[in-house]
């Protein structure tokens, strides 16, 4: 028996939500293609195809209906986020392994859509960076900086036929965060480091503009009410505050907040990954705590840890804590007195 309500909000569905998320990623993707070459299209398409294939396979093995799960589009969002988090022009099997981790391990082994305690794309990223650290740091250099620009045909070659033709040195370069880390260890003064070609006017060269486009896409999500302001604001504030504090304490060691905000996965993480509702905290106060701490941990990992970027690990760590945070940040229900009441 189906009771009221008899009307539902029009044009509202999981696939609509996912489509809005994907649409909001497009400005960032275009900027990425503009500054780093067309290789990103290859990885996006490859991950999407792998995602649909693996999702179908997993659903068949779990004896679940294919239609609704494939139609919801969640696997495409995962695929796109992973494609944008992994270095472009990496060998195809890296993407394949990543999607395997994301779709099969992180999503379906936990019960499928809506049941995963961790963000699938970040699980895959973490697994890959632990297993293949070298591949994971070979990001293409921005067009103009690299000695060799990679066209679409060459990109296909690189991804599918291995890297026989040209040496990675010809088209990759260390990212800004990576450069900062290695140069600081070598004892270089900050002014000299920032003058290196990896850096632009604020963050990583060209990266900063891609980050701004992600920010723009994120604002679109906010405007469309797909996400609330809590997680991005808290994440970016937590990140900026921690970075500022460390920078103030030791400017020769720790980069300032602008570099942190505009490099690596900060913007993508703030608007598109930490906001994944399945694995994030869900109460308003819980979201603030969840994302604020994720921002803090991101900077701690970047500044003190062994990996160049910390967004993935920070979000995964906070995913673990999300249910706990939710339990302690339940909003006051209408007509109840403020303060935590005994929960029986």
């Amino acid at each position: 028996m189906n009771g009221s309500p008899f009307t539902l909000l029009a044009n509202n569905s999981v696939s609509a939500v996912m489509l809005k998320v994907m649409a909001a990623l497009i400005p960032g993707i275009i900027a990425h293609a503009w500054f780093f070459g067309p290789g990103i299209w290859v990885s996006l398409l490859l991950c999407s195809a792998l995602g649909i294939g693996l999702e179908t396979l997993a659903l068949l093995m779990r004896a679940r209906p294919l239609g609704p799960a494939l139609k919801d589009g969640s696997v495409l969002v995962t695929a796109w986020l992973l494609a944008l988090s992994l270095p472009t022009l990496a060998p195809w099997w890296l993407y394949a392994l990543g999607m395997l981790f994301a779709v099969v391990v992180a999503k379906h082994l936990y019960g499928g859509f809506g049941q995963n305690p961790f963000n699938p794309a970040m699980v895959a990223y973490a697994a890959l960076i632990v297993s293949f650290p070298v591949y994971m740091t070979q990001w293409p250099a921005p067009v103009g900086v690299a000695p060799h620009g990679v066209g679409l045909g060459e990109a296909l070659d690189l991804v599918f036929a291995g890297q026989g033709g040209i040496s990675p040195d010809a088209y990759t370069a260390a990212t800004a965060l990576d450069t900062w880390k290695t140069q600081i260890r070598m004892g270089k003064p900050v002014a000299d480091i920032l003058a290196l070609p990896a850096f632009g006017w604020g963050g990583g060269r060209a990266q900063e503009l891609v980050a701004l486009m992600y920010l723009f896409g994120g604002l679109l999500l906010l405007a469309n009410r797909v996400i609330t302001w809590h997680i991005p604001v808290a994440f970016l504030s937590g990140l900026a505050l921690t970075a500022s504090l460390l920078h103030a304490m030791n400017p020769a060691q720790h980069a300032g907040p602008v570099l942190h905000l505009l490099s690596g996965g900060a913007m993508l993480g703030a608007f598109f990954i930490a906001t994944d509702p399945v694995s994030a905290a869900s109460t308003p106060r819980g979201k603030l705590i969840f994302a604020g701490l994720a921002g803090l941990i991101t900077v701690l990992i970047r500044n003190f840890g062994g990996y160049p970027d910390g967004v993935a690990f920070a979000i995964l760590l906070m995913n673990v804590a999300a249910p706990f945070i939710d339990a302690y940040t339940q909003p006051r229900v209408f007509g109840h007195k403020p303060g935590r009441e005994d929960r029986t």
Partner: peptide, 13 residues
């Protein structure tokens, strides 16, 4: 009593 809502998700063959 209100019955358990019919939920089509777990249509296991």
């Amino acid at each position: 009593k209100w019955r358990y809502p019919i939920f089509h998700m777990k249509k296991v063959p």
